[in-house]
Design a protein around this nucleic acid. Structure first.
Lengths: 145, 145
DNA sequence: GCGTATCCCATTGACGCCCATATGGTCCCA
DNA sequence: TGGGACCATATGGGCGTCAATGGGATACGC
């Protein structure tokens, strides 16, 4: 059972490219994903990335609602207006565009974060902060394991 | 009924590897665990390690909630973004990656701590400190074993 | 035509796989 | 009961492979 797991931080080179971790590329290859659907995450300052199936799932969800509802409208604004298709180069690298930089605050390093069916791009410090906060909230709530 | 029990401290070699105590490896073998799921613990500065079933248990817990709830999202950030699969080499050793070092403060020695259905990696001093504190709290609370 | 992105090739450093050594404990036998 | 052979575990290191990164050159779009 393969999924996107773990996190790793890679450097952006002089041309603005960054290597996608090989573990993630394996998952993509296994799922026959050629084109990547990237969108600005709904809750975190991160870019979420998955295959075209991810977009299709969102679209089905919209279709399930009244197409004129404010909710469906809003959803489309986010997943269509806030999404792009990208692809990797021959070495498995990704161009870090202004689309990504602006939304995440990424400048010279990228943290890749696995999220089971997709993965995310984070500004390194923002990721550790978000993780620490999530952990802190669970601790305060008295939850365990 | 076999479980992970006791603790032991092993040295990290020049290549950054450490031997998993043989008692723990026996338990893993008995449970047919080939791949190890390792994640950054929710409450301690330690890495918790178990079989893939551990991850699946977490995922079932997430699936039980609304997939778009902040809580489920937060949980995924921890168990997917804060978790990795690793495997032992032929001699039963584990690579101590930056993923582990950064979170635990481990540098040249690792304390393995049994936790029944999983085990943990600690920075040796941090472990004795946490244990001492737990003991102190129980004493103050007047609890008996 | 110039800036930007894509393709291709080179480098290097890390990790996985393999074999070798040491150290400590146990068991057997005299 | 003491000595020694044997075994298992922990540890050290060589070497090949692959991933991450850097950089030149070419194609493309504004």
């Amino acid at each position: 059972m393969s999924r996107f797991l773990s996190n790793a931080t890679n450097r952006i080179d002089a041309k603005g490219r960054v290597s996608v971790p090989s573990a993630f590329r394996s998952v993509l290859a296994q799922r026959n994903v050629q084109e990547l659907y990237c969108f600005q995450d709904f809750v975190f300052p991160a870019i979420s990335i998955g295959g075209p199936d991810l977009l299709e799932r969102f679209e089905r969800q919209i279709a399930a609602e009244d197409p004129f509802s404010p909710d469906a409208n809003e959803m489309s604004l986010l997943i269509h207006g806030g999404g792009v298709f990208m692809k990797l180069d021959a070495e498995g690298r990704l161009m870090v565009t202004d689309f990504i930089r602006g939304f995440t605050g990424i400048s010279d390093e990228v943290t890749f974060v696995g999220r089971a069916d997709h993965f995310q791009l984070w500004q390194p410090q923002a990721f550790v902060a978000a993780q620490a906060q999530a952990r802190g909230e669970r601790k305060l709530a008295g939850k365990r394991s």
